[in-house]
Design a protein around this nucleic acid. Sequence first.
DNA 1: ATTATCTATAGATCTATAGATAATGC
DNA 2: ATTATCTATAGATCTATAGATAATGC
Lengths: 220, 220
Amino acid sequence: MKTRDKIILASLDLFNEQGERNVTTNHIAAHLNISPGNLYYHFRNKTDIVYEIFLQYELLVDHYLQLPKGRSLLLDDLIFYLESVFDGLWSYRFFHRDLEFLLDSDERLRRDYREFTMRCLGVVNRILGSLRDSHILIDMGDEHRSAMALNVWLIVTNWMAFLKTAHAGEKNTAIRKEMLKQGIYQVLCLTLPYLTESYVDTVVKISQKYKPAPVFSATA
Amino acid sequence: MKTRDKIILASLDLFNEQGERNVTTNHIAAHLNISPGNLYYHFRNKTDIVYEIFLQYELLVDHYLQLPKGRSLLLDDLIFYLESVFDGLWSYRFFHRDLEFLLDSDERLRRDYREFTMRCLGVVNRILGSLRDSHILIDMGDEHRSAMALNVWLIVTNWMAFLKTAHAGEKNTAIRKEMLKQGIYQVLCLTLPYLTESYVDTVVKISQKYKPAPVFSATA
DNA sequence: ATTATCTATAGATCTATAGATAATGC
DNA sequence: ATTATCTATAGATCTATAGATAATGC
């Protein structure tokens, strides 16, 4: 593998493990047993490495979020979208953690990420619309569907951070990939009141598979 | 005002304006026209300053989230809760921005924040329960209500970050406090399908007041 | 006497580059 | 010749402390 690619991969690993803030160019170079000078031969600075990683992330998510041509969505499609997106979030989990700082530090990234968000919101919106066309969801009107899409986006992109902070301080601080999938339960709960009658039981059953551990279920 | 309190206030201001990551003890001291040595006389390090600020934040939110004794909630109470909480989030907006790093760096804060989260989730849950008792919301069962409370929490605590990242790169990057209130629209949308019939129209009307600018409404 | 403040600085990083050297591809 | 790599280091911070002074409260 080319050194340039090794740098990207190692950076992603280190960022995910330790947080971008805690990883310097020195750390990355040391981790790869190359000199800092060599790293700077391939990248002008850390910002450029992050930007490359973002491009990969963007590519991955855009790939996941394609809509099938010529047919509307099935319930299985929805589950597949959710599984895929949470997989992607896991693989690039450092990204949302320091998002605001990263965007502050890089004009390009700021612009690209903004377009990426809007594109994703549009797709989520279209997914909801397609599920309505398949009579899985009831119609909720354009305005409400947009708000709903945004709520889905907020929950999906921030579930990870919630897990990290809510579990912080427990014996085993590390978040495992399986726990991340509990976010799917949260999204499915969001859709429950909009399901057509014939789908309610199925979705409730599926959602149980992803149900969070009792720690998150404070009682009223 | 005592120097110690001035340090806390100045830090909060600077953190909110520039992000905790971009503000060093030197900056804080310079901003107050005191020496770094003086700052270190009052605080062992930046972590301790952040912790003090968190304690204030916690106090504020706990105060906001009290439930009235001897009566169940009215619709106005709900709006008041939302207004108050978004106010609090605004005043301490740096906090959620770098939350994960802050928790990583301070054992105490990690433990306290975790308890704080669980306490808040419990209150949100009780608020939803009380609105059901007032026949404003329909009953959704314990499990679903807990999931709903968590979704509300995720949307409320992350709305700010969304605004920042989605608006990033526009002419006027600064987020104003009014925009933050658009998060109330998102939360009200979440409750819509659970409203009893007699409240739907009123809530729809109220929610229009907080409706986001069209930029967030990608169409299907 | 105690509390608050300043001056000065050691020590630890981290970034980024210049310049030398090694490896590779025509 | 060009590309990749290393060595060495300048310059910029930032943290945190020691030790001297000033201000304050009995």
